[in-house]
C-alpha cells in the first residue's frame, strides 16, 4: 500500500494554488509553500506578502539578476511587481496581526483535528525557530498547511492531538498532503480530494485522527 505513488510536491503546490483567489493577500511560508508561487498568476491580481516587508512580489529573478535587497522571508531572491511596496518588519507583522492577510500557506509537522498546528519544533531537538509562523497563525484570516501525509518513519501527521509543541491553536482550515486535500471542519477532518489510485480506507489507515469522507470524493488533478 505504501508503495503506491503519492502526489508530487509540484502537484500539491499546484492544487493548493487553486484555492487562492484574485484579490487575496497571501503569505507563503518557507519550503513547500514557496513552491505555490510558481502556480499563481503574477499579474497583480493576488498580492504576495512577505514577513521581511515586501508586498506585491513576483517570480524568482533570472540568474545574474538577483538583488540582495530583494528577497523573501526564506532568503530566496524575488522580483517586485509593478505596484509593489516595502514596509518595515513591524509594519509587516502589523499587517498580519491586524487581519490584512487573507491566507497564510505554511508547512507543518502535525495538524490536529481541531486545526491546531505544530510546525516549529521537532523533539528531541531542544531548539526550533518559530519565526513569523506564530503571528501568522493568530493573524491570517485563513491558514492552509501543505506537508507530507506521514513522517519519514511513516507516522501520521494528521492527528487527534498534536504531540509536538504548538505554533497555533485552532487556526488551520485546509491541509494539502501528498495523499489528498483535507478540510478542517467543526467535526474534524474531511477528505475533499484524494490522490489518484488511493482509496479513502487506505488514506484513513495512514491518518491518526478520524476522517470523514465527502459524498463526492474526487481525485486531485493537475
Amino acid at each position: 500500500m505504501s508503495e503506491k505513488e503519492r502526489l508530487s510536491r509540484e502537484l500539491m503546490a499546484l492544487r493548493l494554488a487553486r484555492e487562492l483567489k484574485p484579490g487575496m493577500v497571501v503569505n507563503l511560508g518557507i519550503g513547500m509553500p514557496t513552491l505555490v508561487s510558481d502556480y499563481i498568476p503574477h499579474d497583480g491580481s493576488l498580492v504576495l506578502h512577505s514577513e521581511n516587508g515586501v508586498i506585491g512580489f513576483g517570480p524568482t529573478p533570472r540568474e545574474g539578476e538577483e538583488d540582495p535587497n530583494l528577497v523573501n522571508a526564506g532568503g530566496g531572491f524575488i522580483t517586485l511587481l509593478p505596484g509593489g511596496a516595502f514596509v518595515s518588519h513591524a509594519d509587516a507583522f502589523a499587517m498580519i496581526r491586524g487581519g490584512h492577510v487573507d491566507v497564510a500557506v505554511l508547512g507543518g509537522l502535525q495538524v490536529s483535528e481541531q486545526g491546531d498546528l505544530a510546525n516549529w519544533l521537532v523533539p528531541p531537538r531542544a531548539l526550533g525557530s518559530p519565526g513569523g509562523a506564530v503571528d501568522l497563525c493568530v493573524g491570517a484570516k485563513q491558514v492552509f498547511v501543505v506537508m507530507e501525509h506521514t513522517t519519514r518513519d511513516g507516522k501520521p501527521r494528521l492527528v487527534s492531538r498534536c504531540t509536538y509543541s504548538l505554533t497555533g491553536a485552532r487556526c488551520v482550515s485546509l491541509v494539502m498532503t501528498d495523499l489528498g486535500l483535507f478540510q478542517v471542519t467543526p467535526q474534524g477532518f474531511l477528505l475533499r480530494e484524494i490522490a489518484p489510485g488511493w482509496t479513502a480506507a487506505e488514506v484513513r489507515s495512514l491518518t491518526e485522527a478520524p476522517l470523514a469522507v465527502g459524498p463526492e470524493l474526487v481525485e486531485v488533478r493537475a
Binding site: 493577500v25 517586485l80 509593478p82
Partner: peptide
C-alpha cells in the same frame, strides 16, 4: 502601478 517609487510608498495598497 510602477509609477510610484516602491521605496517611498507609505501605505501599501492592501
Amino acid at each position: 502601478p510602477g509609477e510610484l517609487d516602491p521605496e517611498v510608498i507609505l501605505t501599501p495598497g492592501l
